[in-house]
Design a protein around this nucleic acid. Structure first.
Lengths: 333, 333
DNA sequence: TCGGCTAAGGCGAACGTTCACACTCTCGAT
DNA sequence: ATCGAGAGTGTGAACGTTCGCCTTAGCCGA
């Protein structure tokens, strides 16, 4: 295996010392223009590329961030991941990504250790599930950590940032209230996920604000099948006039139960989802839902992290989701 | 900022040379048990963690792979990414991930350069879109590259591996043929994506094998809306008895057009999708579709890459997708 | 003539590892 | 007693950078 050219190789070829090459390639301070050009030409010619590992060793700055993502293929987390990576790249950082298939403390600790060995300068945790905050607290970590976890609060060890899903849930519920619905059921997501808890809370809060009683919560587990089953049960028990479902996928499963029974949406019942998945406009009828701005979340997340790295003040006010009104909701009869 | 403890710190604390510490932490060959334990205790105590960058520098092995992923949030690529990362991790590698929002040559070259600076030992490119192979060929690259791109062929510079989506398309089509359908339309995905081309090809091939004429292809762009529009057109022109849609999302859009028109599936028309997205079981009726085994693809992809790194022979026969029969297909009248 | 300034570039050390050796014991065998 | 083997441990160099400091040459002014 051929060794890649190093500074010294370039230096030899250009007839200068390797420090001069370093100078040319970095700041370029105090180098004769002719030398500069020659060095650059040689570097280009040899296909020289800096060894970032060596650089990290001596500068003690790896220009690397670690990202821990939930391996669940749910739409939201995945989009966030892509956005975070892009933001990191734009800031001149590389992202080392690792996934947690189930959010076990061990997995998280393993990830932190690995990142530590790579000398990352900061860590982003995309952790929509339960008790990640406690875990992080348990690992002594020496770099800034940004936790993307709805409803958590910042601690000494880490900064929390999130999209205001509680607000999202309130927007969804408010929309139904404003359409005149009085009985608004919530089909909740798994309460092991923070998203699930927060969306439930938002629904409750908005009902309270509207002086409406909260019907019994139906608990699903994010799966379409769980929502389908609940749909069947509700059909048997009698449908409410409106329902706020904690995710689009669950909404779809719920709709399936309705189709089967010949119930018409939104004539017989109004349905609101959450996520604005790619398929939400394609359901029948197209689904009214809540859109999170993952791109913005990713960007701001990196902004916050780099702010922490550089010690500049950061703004962690939550990102704001938006209600997307399509055809699955209508005024109460 | 406090420096992290190094081998030397541990050595000093344990009263041995840093060399001995290194031995303990690596192979552990020929170290007195008492020393071993003492060193381990001290290391644990100090929270020592190896600096992988320094290690990479001297061993010339970074234990790092680079992954280039298409930033499109399509289900398939995303699942593949997660699987690749997990396989890399299991093999003791870290994954540096970067995404390409649009598969421009510049983006790819940038990614290769960045990886080169990080001294990755291998690169995985998850590139379902068009001409990535040419791009890679243009960049002089010194490490093994595995290209996850259906229908490409291996070159000097890189090894191609993929799931046999053409076979998948044939399975889907064959299923319809076996149900007695004679007029099987294909609603194709964007032909700028290799997946789109390959699925189209599989449909054609199977029709030919069955001695059936191929009706005019309808071209969509992966979006549900494009499929919806095509659905409306087909409704106007007269529906075929069966249709093979190039993706589940498009199938959903197509179904929407049918619902609107009051057409019943599968009674009036059989529909097969592709991908087995998470929502496929939740459509109404649940969608017959083709499932790709992303997990296996990811694993084998890493296997191949590491095989190339270590110079052991690799098996690149394509992974095999599976037909998942649900309720959107039935025998021809 | 000399001192001093500046621009250009070289020298050596350091970062935290691993690797190839070399050294020092303690045995048991000769 | 001497030798050799092997277990246990230390030494020095190297990896490719950056950084602080030093050297050299050229120039200007006194």
């Amino acid at each position: 295996m051929l060794r890649r050219p190093s500074l010294k190789d370039v230096a030899r070829e250009a007839g200068v010392s390797f420090q001069t090459v370093s100078r040319v390639l970095n700041g370029g301070s105090r180098v004769a223009e002719s030398t500069r050009l020659r060095v650059l030409a040689v570097a280009e010619d040899l296909g020289y590329r800096r060894n970032d590992n060596a650089r990290a060793l001596v500068t003690n700055r790896s220009r690397t961030v670690g990202v821990i993502a939930d391996a669940s293929p749910r739409y939201g987390p995945v989009s966030t991941l892509a956005a975070v990576e892009k933001a990191a790249r734009d800031a001149g950082y590389n992202a080392i990504v690792t996934t947690m298939s189930n959010p076990s403390p061990d997995d998280a600790i393993r990830a932190f250790h690995e990142f530590s060995k790579r000398a990352v300068e900061g860590i982003v945790v995309i952790a929509p599930r339960m008790p990640i905050a406690d875990v992080i607290q348990a690992v002594p970590v020496t770099v800034p950590v940004v936790l993307l976890a709805p409803g958590e609060t910042s601690h000494d060890g880490f900064t929390v940032f999130f999209e205001d899903q509680e607000l999202g849930a309130r927007l969804a519920t408010r929309h139904l209230v404003e359409l005149g619905h009085r009985e608004i059921v919530h089909l909740a997501g798994s309460q092991e996920w923070l998203d699930g808890q927060v969306r439930l809370r938002g629904w409750q809060a908005e009902l309270t604000a509207a002086n409406l009683a909260a019907p019994a919560v139906r608990y699903g587990d994010w799966s379409g099948d769980s929502a389908y089953a609940i749909g069947r049960r509700l059909l048997a028990e009698g449908l409410p006039s409106a329902i706020f479902v904690a995710s689009d996928l669950m909404a779809l499963g719920f709709l399936r139960a309705l189709y089967e029974a010949g119930v018409s949406v939104p004539r017989d019942i109004s349905v609101v989802g959450f996520d604005d998945n790619e398929f939400a406009p394609q359901t029948f009828p197209p689904l009214t839902t809540v859109r999170q701005s993952f791109g913005i979340v990713g960007e701001r997340c990196m902004e916050i992290l780099l702010g922490l790295v550089q010690g500049t003040p950061v703004d962690v006010t939550p990102a704001v989701p938006k209600l997307v009104i399509r055809d699955s909701t209508t005024a109460a009869r």
